[in-house]
Design a protein around this nucleic acid. Structure first.
Length: 393
DNA sequence: ATGTCC
């Protein structure tokens, strides 16, 4: 399905790949962003678009000579990692429960962190730059080290999946933990201070921005790129441990070679070339999908997930959706559904089925199949995955 | 999302 040009009166057009119309709050948010003077060409909305803070989750905002830190958000570098293993579904038989318990033992989830920092984590080159980070986060170095290789909470998860050819995949969703959050919050605060001092007229205080060439922009950009690197390596560390757990059960502990590896951000900003111009591209709940890019689009805990390859669609700034997108808030989901609903909707998945994850119930999300149909001009499907084990943060 | 609400 191609995009629809939304009838929102702003200086810049808003192109939407969603097949649903936006609510009043969502329309206002799209309009606010599209009215910023430094927005490039147009704003692109992915098919899973929904309300966020400052900017819509599932939006791609390209900007010239400026950036909006709140549009990137606080979970800097949040994204997905997946590997295709040489194992097949039949090898998993009778082992799911033990695999799940071993994943939980190997990777701290929720508010837990690593007790010790192993060599792989200590050798990360990013620690050498830690002293150069801004906004006085140096006291958080020990915590950042212990959180490297930990999942976090919310909708962060680890899954063992099986594709249509019965091949086993490992997949996980996580970000830059507390350190990325702290850096982002500090810079968002600094942008708001600057806006107040300059008496900027903003459609939303969360759209305070930094201008390229200023020290504040440079400081934010530096910390942003660092946090994105932290998030990517965090996923690599967890995936290595995850792979070892599965190898222990399926290969007698022998190391195996992944048949395909993907590690993509869906909450980040990058300098890119679009329509012949260098721009800052903020993907807030969106994945880069140039023709050579692999991406991961997860469904909810009872639904399918997709490994995709980009089609390099220029109008979308070479992007695609980051998931199914919520249809209702976490609070509403908790009120509307029961534990029985959750048990029914996650049938066949080895996972938690308690009140603590009720807000992640599949029915609180859009249909991933519909979302995929809406972006057939943005990505092609490489593999369709169904989870058999799901560990929630 | 977040040592989850100083």
């Amino acid at each position: 399905m191609p995009y629809e040009k939304l009838e929102i009166s702003t200086p810049k057009p808003v192109l939407s790949w969603a097949n649903h119309s936006l609510g009043a709050d969502e329309t206002k948010m799209a309009k606010n962003v599209a009215s910023l003077p430094f927005v490039f060409k147009h704003v692109a909305l992915m098919p899973d678009v929904h309300l966020g803070k400052g900017a819509l989750v599932g939006s791609v905002v390209a900007t010239k000579e400026a950036i909006v830190p709140a549009a990137v958000g606080v979970d800097v570098g949040c994204g997905m990692c997946a590997i295709k293993t040489p194992f097949t579904a039949s090898q998993l038989e009778g082992k799911l429960k033990q695999i799940r318990l071993d994943i939980e033992a190997a990777i701290p989830v929720g508010f837990h962190e690593n007790k010790e920092t192993d060599k792989t984590v200590l050798n990360w080159q990013g620690w050498r730059e830690f002293k150069d980070l801004h906004s006085g986060v140096q006291r958080l170095e020990t915590k950042a080290m212990k959180q490297m290789g930990s999942l976090g909470g919310g909708n962060h998860f680890l899954e063992v999946c099986v594709d249509a050819e019965e091949q086993v995949w490992l997949m996980l969703h996580s970000g830059s933990r507390n350190i990325g959050n702290m850096l982002a919050q500090n810079h968002i605060g600094s942008a708001k201070e600057l806006a107040k001092l300059a008496d900027n007229r903003l459609p939303d205080p969360d759209l305070a921005y930094f201008i390229a060439g200023t020290p504040e922009f440079a400081a934010y950009w530096h910390d942003l790129q660092w946090a994105q690197g932290y998030a990517r390596f965090n996923r690599d560390v967890m995936m290595a441990r995850f792979k070892r757990v599965v190898e222990k059960h399926l290969a007698g502990g022998k190391p195996t070679k992944a048949l395909l590896s993907v590690n993509c951000h869906h909450n980040y900003a990058e300098k890119e070339l679009h329509f012949g111009e260098e721009v800052y591209v903020t993907r807030k709940g969106a994945v880069r999908a140039r023709s050579e890019d692999y991406g991961i689009i997860p469904g909810s805990m009872g639904a399918k997930s997709f490994i995709v390859k980009g089609k390099g669609n220029a109008e979308s700034y070479c992007s695609c959706s980051h998931g199914a997108g919520r249809t209702m808030s976490r609070n509403k989901a908790k009120l509307q559904f029961s534990l029985d609903d959750l048990i029914q909707q996650t049938d066949g998945v080895e996972c938690r089925k308690d009140a603590g994850v009720l807000d992640e119930i599949p029915a609180a999300y859009k249909s991933i199949e519909q979302v995929m149909a809406n972006q057939s001009d943005l990505v092609e499907v490489v593999a369709t995955l169904k989870q058999v084990v799901c560990v929630k943060g």
